[in-house]
């Protein structure tokens, strides 16, 4: 018996490894609580080190970018001043419009849909490989975060929280293959699904052929699916093509920001499935 096992040692090792890995993978895909616990523990252990390393590396980079590399700052400053002037003007117009909407809301007794509490978080790490588009942020359950809360930047949607420990959380980005966001084209109101492809450009599915959608049209979240609130900007449509007799267009979506170079995010502390905050009388 001993000789038999020794002879087939290599085969036995590989079979055991394969069985164990497949078992863990199956557990992981069904998101069992034991797997969640393992991931939560490892996140809790490593997050203080990551926080420190991110802080140190950012410090070194900021010394370089703030004090050494200041080429073209003067021209940049002049250009930005022009942009600021334009934005101030637009802001004045929009503030007036918001005020008038608020007055109408009061008249119609609408809930305060846009007063969603949020938490700003810093990115302290990413996934160990580039195969999973995952961010690690420095806020966790202690700050009121929980699973499935939407994560955005001021430019648009980033992803959702998938795992929370005390002081850190994992965010699955919209460009991961596991992500799918139900969206609508802002201009034409055509519905579609935005799917991640582990690349900077996202895929569009189920955009009806024959719609008036054009390249450059903005896509926003539809609010369906129970994770992302309605109206969050996801990106702009590119590469719209008709494929044979297909009922749907083939298209891609360019996010509003470079998803791989985000430093800070905003976590919306409310899911769309929850009721809107009560309006104060």
């Amino acid at each position: 018996m001993g000789g038999f096992l020794r002879k087939r040692q290599n085969l036995i090792i590989i079979c055991v490894l394969l069985a164990l890995s497949l078992f863990l993978y199956a557990e992981s895909l069904s998101r069992r609580s034991s797997i969640n616990m393992l991931e939560r523990v490892s996140l809790a252990i490593l997050s203080p080190f990551q926080n420190f390393t991110a802080w140190t590396v950012e410090g070194v980079f900021s010394v370089w970018s703030d004090y050494v590399s200041l080429v073209n700052v003067r021209q940049e400053n002049r250009r930005l001043k022009t942009v600021v002037d334009r934005l101030v003007f637009e802001n004045t117009l929009l503030t007036e419009r918001i005020k008038s909407y608020e007055r109408l809301d009061k008249l119609l007794d609408f809930p305060d849909a846009d007063k969603i509490p949020f938490e700003v978080a810093r990115i302290i790490g990413k996934d160990t490989s580039s195969r999973v588009r995952l961010l690690i942020i420095n806020k966790g359950s202690r700050h009121g975060l929980s699973v499935n809360m939407p994560v955005i930047t001021y430019r648009g949607l980033v992803g959702r929280i998938v795992l929370v420990s005390g002081s850190a959380s994992k965010v699955l980005m919209i460009n991961d293959v596991r992500s799918a966001v139900d969206g609508i084209v802002q201009e034409t109101r055509d519905s579609l699904v935005v799917v991640g492809a582990n690349s900077p450009i996202l895929e569009i599915k189920y955009l009806a052929a024959g719609s008036d959608t054009r390249e450059g049209d903005r896509v926003v979240s539809s609010g369906l699916g129970g994770v992302y609130p309605k109206g969050l900007v996801i990106g702009v449509l590119t590469d719209i093509k008709k494929v044979g007799d297909s009922l749907f267009y083939s298209a891609s979506l360019k996010p509003m920001q470079d998803l791989d170079n985000i430093e800070e995010v905003v976590v919306l502390l409310k899911r769309p499935a929850e009721p809107f905050p009560e309006k104060k009388q």
């Binding site: 890995s21 863990l24 993978y25 490892s42 160990t128």
Partner: peptide, 21 residues
């Protein structure tokens, strides 16, 4: 590595063990 990732428990464990082996 798998515990630090998301939804891929067992994949890196298998590949890295096989590499070592």
């Amino acid at each position: 590595q798998d515990t630090l990732s998301y939804g891929s428990m067992g994949v890196n464990m298998l590949s890295k063990s096989l590499i070592g082996f």
